[in-house]
Computed example of a mutant assay.
Amino acid sequence: MLKGLGNIGDMAKMMAKAQELQGKMAEAQERIANIEAEGEAGAGMVKARVSGKGELRGLSIDPSLFVPEDREAVEDLIIAAIRTAQENAAEAAQAEMAQAAEGLPLPPGMKLPF
Results as ranks from 00 to 15, higher is better:
Glu72Lys: 13
Ala92Trp: 03
Ala33Gly: 07
Gln29Asn: 12
Ala80Trp: 00
Ala48Phe: 13
Leu5Met: 12
Ala81Cys: 10
Glu36Gln: 14
Ser51Lys: 01
Asp70Thr: 06
Pro113Trp: 04
Gln99Phe: 10
Met14Val: 08
Ala100Leu: 09
Glu96Leu: 06
Gln29Cys: 06
Gly4Ser: 14
Gly23Gln: 12
Ala95Leu: 09
Lys53Phe: 13
Ala28Val: 15
Gln86Lys: 15
Ile78His: 03
Gly44Gln: 02
Pro68Cys: 13
Met14Pro: 02
Asp76Ile: 05
Gly23Cys: 00
Ile82Ser: 15
Gly6His: 11
Leu77Ile: 02
Met110Asn: 03
Gly39Asp: 02
Met15Leu: 13
Phe114Pro: 02
Pro107Ala: 15
Leu2Ile: 15
Leu59His: 11
Glu40Ala: 11
Gln86Gly: 03
Glu27Tyr: 11
Gln94Lys: 03
Phe114Glu: 00
Pro113Thr: 08
Gly103Leu: 14
Ala98Arg: 01
Leu112Gln: 09
Leu112Gly: 04
Ile78Met: 11
Met97Leu: 15
Ala80Gly: 08
Ile8Ala: 00
Gln29Leu: 12
Gly9Pro: 08
Pro107Cys: 12
Ala92Leu: 06
Arg71Glu: 14
Gln86Thr: 15
Glu30Ile: 10
Ala18Glu: 14
Ala89Gly: 00
Met25Leu: 13
Gln22His: 09
Leu112Lys: 04
Ala43Leu: 08
Ala41Asn: 03
Gln29Glu: 11
Ala37Ser: 10
Val74Ser: 04
Gln19Thr: 09
Ala26Asp: 09
Asn7His: 14
Pro68Ile: 10
Gln99Gly: 08
